[in-house]
Amino acid sequence: MEGELVEADIVVPMHLSFKKTQAYEKYPKGQSRGRWKHLKQILQADPDHHPFYINIESPPSTQPCKRICDVTGFEAPYVDPRTNLRYANAHVFKTLRSLSTHQVHHYLSIRNAAPLLK
């Protein structure tokens, strides 16, 4: 390793005396990926009881949903039926119509409203 690198001391040493099993023994090359359950799988495997990770999830809001312009962030009284984007005024509408399909999709996906392609 380069001297500069040794001096900076950013690499975690391979062998650590305080460990009973070293990482390279535990995770030989190529074995590591995709071995771990994701949160969803973890939760499915756990039997239901109270209180539990899933139960403490917040409920949906009771307040009316706030509608803001996707492009500018202003209050948005209108929805473009073609792109499904919300917009504040005619000026924004003009820019909205000049967006590419990719950009429209991106704006929609930010608020999780983009059509899902299966």
């Binding site: 917040s58 409920p59 809001s61």
Partner: peptide, 19 residues
């Protein structure tokens, strides 16, 4: 305060207290 702005259908910080 309004998670639904990014498509998360849950209460915001203020309402969480009530919940």
């Amino acid at each position: 305060f309004h998670p639904n702005l990014v498509g998360i259908d849950q209460v915001g910080v203020d309402e969480m207290v009530g919940a």
